[in-house]
Design a protein around this nucleic acid. Structure first.
Length: 494
RNA sequence: GCCCCCAUCGUCUAGUGGCCUAGGACAUCGCCCUUUCAAGGCGACGGCGGGGAUUCGAAUUCCCCUGGGGGCACCA
């Protein structure tokens, strides 16, 4: 056990993005690895963009990934509340403290003026920075303007000097405070700014380590100044790289799936997702690639997290997903693909389910692929009119279908268990071979007759999963097709 | 424009001055297995962005350039 406390602090502006998911994962792994705790904090300071529906979807996505926070809005804890929208009193107290200690001051500058000045600075090729117009206002002047009904925001007075911190991932990083203007901590509308709320919360929740994306790296300087002004110890910081799209740009909706929800509904398994996200910039000390959550907790170290940005490559995720998919027991696999089958109108008989699951297993990249492979077990198939009908005409096929109809006609039940299906098929093949047919002349026409396709699961799966009546019907259609084409009446001479 | 971060195969990465003729994985290609498709096995292709400096010796250290990313809000 250690006193390490980390937090994952998403703002509920949508469902969990893969980038945020990875941040959550790294926080979770880091905390668990050292026996610390993770808190979930919802940063809904911007009520306009926040929806409560989103925070439940984020909690669901985290749960799906297996990342349970030790404290949070759903599970409670001693440092709540865990939604920023419910913590206004704490922020206000901190604002009053900074005002009282001279670290903050009211600013009456109207927004339009601020923007104008910013544009001027930009035009003059300087870093935009508040010019401290209101910094030197006397108390009486301030009181006077408030009395006159003027509204003010509250700014933090940033101290001179450099701010340096030892980033856990990057090493030492230094900012000169003169690139940082006095920033707002409380808006005119009464809301509290992000950088400020975060500090009050991290302090209040006794966070020891902040693990977040590189996009926050410049916030760190401001936040550390705030900690110092508030008289609180700053946490350690670690900034991991961002996830980029294959073209090197920021990952966005136009690149396809980007949220955990997207991947989940496409049929990726959470185990694969977690494994992939971990590997995206972390690397174990050996060359293993496959890790479950527990193993990750065991092995994960921030020191082995890469500093460079990582491109999201669907291929590796696909590979991992296939790996996990192929490990599933037939019953589990069936349960996982069932919703996808149902959505495509594929309803399998109880006895078919595990057979079909097993039959399609090796072909799946994602669960959503299941219907296209399972369709052959339920679709109406007429071998005579399928695209590969010509393959039914293999020499000796008429005899083959005859043989097959006899053998399958003797099936005691509609469905045969896989081992028996395998035996029955073997018997058929042997008989056909006795009649002089080569293996290929058996398997190929038989496959087309049974499925109307030239590729698909092993034949014995077809025999087991199709059921007696479909098998017989398709064989009959195939036999009739052969008769029609090679029957007594001579082929058209054309 | 200014500030910060980053830079090894197409992609994720190993590598912390000699163990590197740069290792692994994904992708791609080939072969094998399979009388189908997959899956699986084996193999091939493929990389230290450029220039200086330090050193007996640099992928590894330093500087410059270039490239990429992030930030510069009364957004989070």
């Amino acid at each position: 056990m250690t006193d390490v406390r980390v937090r994952f602090a998403p703002s509920p502006t949508g469902s969990l993005h893969v980038g945020s998911a990875r941040t959550a994962l790294y926080n979770f792994l880091y905390a668990r690895h050292v026996g610390g705790a993770m808190v979930l904090r919802i940063e809904d300071t911007d009520l306009k963009r926040s929806k409560s529906a989103h925070d439940t979807s984020i909690i669901n996505d985290l749960a799906w990934l297996g990342l349970r926070a030790d404290e949070g809005p759903d599970v409670g804890g001693p440092h709540g509340p865990y939604r920023q929208s419910e913590r206004a009193h704490l922020y206000e107290a901190a604002v009053q403290q900074l005002l009282a200690t001279g670290w903050a001051y009211p600013c009456f500058c109207p927004q339009e003026l601020l923007e104008e000045r910013k544009e001027q600075q930009l035009a003059a090729a300087r870093m935009p920075k508040y010019d401290r117009t209101c910094c030197g206002l006397s108390p009486t002047e301030v009181d006077g303007r408030f009395a006159a009904g003027e509204e003010a925001a509250i700014r933090f007075r940033v101290p001179d000097g450099d701010v340096t911190f030892a980033d856990i991932i990057h090493g030492p990083i230094t900012f000169s405070s003169d690139v940082i203007g006095d920033f707002i901590i409380k808006r005119t509308d009464g809301g509290y700014s992000y950088n400020f709320a975060v500090v009050v919360d991290d302090a209040g929740m006794e966070i020891t380590d902040v693990i977040r994306g590189e996009d926050h790296i410049t916030n760190t300087a401001r936040q550390m100044m705030l900690f110092a002004a508030l008289g609180k110890p700053a946490p350690r910081y670690g900034h991991h790289s961002l996830i980029l799209a294959p073209d090197g740009s920021k990952l966005s909706k136009r690149h396809g799936a980007t949220s955990i929800g997207d991947f989940r509904s496409l049929g990726y398994l959470s185990a694969a997702m977690v494994n992939y996200l971990a590997l995206l910039s972390w690397h174990p000390s050996d060359e293993r690639e496959k890790f479950d959550l527990e193993e990750l907790v065991q092995e994960f170290e921030l020191g082995r997290v890469s500093k460079s940005p990582a491109i999201f490559d669907i291929h590796k995720l696909n590979w991992l997903n296939g790996l996990y998919l192929r490990e599933l027991e037939p019953a589990t696999l069936y349960a996982a693909i069932e919703p996808y089958l149902r959505a495509r109108g594929i309803n399998l008989a109880l006895v078919q389910r595990e057979v079909v699951a097993e039959a399609v297993q090796a072909n799946l990249v994602v669960l959503g692929d299941a219907p296209q492979y399972a369709a052959v077990f339920v679709d109406e198939v007429d071998p005579a009119t399928c695209a590969h009908a010509e393959s039914l005409l293999e020499p000796g096929a008429d005899m083959l279908y005859q043989l097959a109809r006899e053998i399958f006609g003797n099936m005691a039940n509609e469905f045969l268990p896989v081992p028996e299906a395998r035996d029955t098929l073997k018997r058929l093949v042997e008989l056909a071979k006795e009649q002089g047919l080569k293996g290929k002349a058996v398997y190929h026409p038989l496959r087309v007759a049974l499925s109307g396709r030239e590729e698909g699961p092993e034949l014995f799966y077809l025999v087991a999963g199709l059921g007696k009546s479909r098998i017989l019907a398709r064989l009959k259609a195939a036999a009739e097709f052969v008769d029609r084409r090679t029957g007594p009446e001579p082929k058209a001479l054309v």
